[in-house]
């Protein structure tokens, strides 16, 4: 397994990167942590003529406050998010999810932007961004635009990003005072992509759950917002009856495909189990 030959460029500015993308069009591929792209080159699933390494673009790095919220640069590595005190305080869902992403060595290199741009249906960050109501900041020679995470993921491995665009950052709104979050995932081995996962967020007031967001990974082509289940629990205390109702509604939200080891039926069952556990945890 050897990659076919390709060119390599390491632009020093976004403008230079845009120029390279303009010149090479579909033949260029952005390189971030390389943890997904390089294996796909070696397996000859992709054969770009040019890799445009984002490694020298300082403006894509780092975690910073944005009002009471957060802005996380696209090149921020998984391990930085995992260890950030600011993230733990303002977007704890990300901190809860991070340890589920692959293994330490991969988290040391893989990036937030790479994960979102790749849009693996079983990846953690896409579901978390949808659950958190994040905005994805996209730049190109034409300027900058923002897309809600909910709109960003289009289809299997397909996003809003055009070939000449670069994902530069993610903006996360400030958490509500009573916000709670929980991230649950089932994987055959620690660090594997999720069989089924759930990023859940809610505000708990007077024993009731409000603004509930339940976003599943590993059960569809993109992160799935479970609107019926969310409606079933909205404004309720997470008692057994309400949880059962939400679990019941899930079949309207999810129509998972089976994978190599797990049938669609089993995935729906497991999604129900995670829903029960997540709601109980949010209410606790």
């Amino acid at each position: 397994m050897k990659a076919s030959s390709f060119g390599y460029a390491r632009p020093a500015s976004l403008a230079e990167a845009f120029a390279l993308l303009a010149r090479h069009g579909e033949g260029a591929k952005l390189l971030a942590g390389g943890q997904s792209l390089i294996p796909s080159l070696n397996m000859r699933l992709a054969a770009p003529e040019l890799l445009v390494d984002l490694g020298a673009l300082g403006e894509l790095e780092g975690i910073a406050p944005l009002g009471q919220g957060l802005r996380i640069g696209a090149r921020t590595r998984h391990c930085e998010i995992e260890r950030s005190a600011l993230v733990a305080e303002r977007a704890p869902l990300l901190a809860q999810a991070a340890p589920h992403i692959a293994h330490v060595a991969i988290r040391n290199r893989g990036t937030l932007g790479g994960s979102l741009a790749l849009a693996d249906p079983a990846a953690e960050w896409p579901a978390c961004c949808v659950a958190l109501g994040a905005q994805i900041v996209i730049a190109s020679a034409r300027g900058e635009r923002r897309v809600a995470a909910e709109q960003f993921f289009k289809a299997l491995y397909a996003t809003e990003l055009a070939a000449d665009e670069i994902l530069v950052a993610v903006e996360i709104p400030p958490p509500a005072p009573q916000a709670r979050s929980v991230f649950l995932e089932l994987a055959r081995r620690r660090g594997d992509y999720a069989m089924v996962g759930l990023a859940a967020q809610a505000n708990r007031t007077d024993g009731q759950l409000r603004d509930v967001r339940l976003v599943f990974l590993g059960v569809g082509a993109i992160p799935v917002l479970a609107r019926h289940a969310m409606a079933a629990i909205e404004g309720k205390a997470a008692d057994a009856a309400a949880i059962a109702a939400a679990q019941h509604e899930l079949s309207k939200d999810l129509s998972p495909n089976g994978d190599l080891y797990t049938s669609a039926e089993a995935k729906l069952h497991l999604a129900r189990v995670l829903t029960g556990r997540a709601l109980a945890a949010l209410a606790r």
Binding site: L186, R188, M195, Y261, T262, S263, E265, A266, H269, L270
Partner: peptide, 13 residues
């Protein structure tokens, strides 16, 4: 013994 097989044995799916 995958989760799938165990769930089936348990009659959960």
């Amino acid at each position: 013994f995958t989760p799938e097989r165990i769930l089936r044995a348990l009659g959960r799916i």
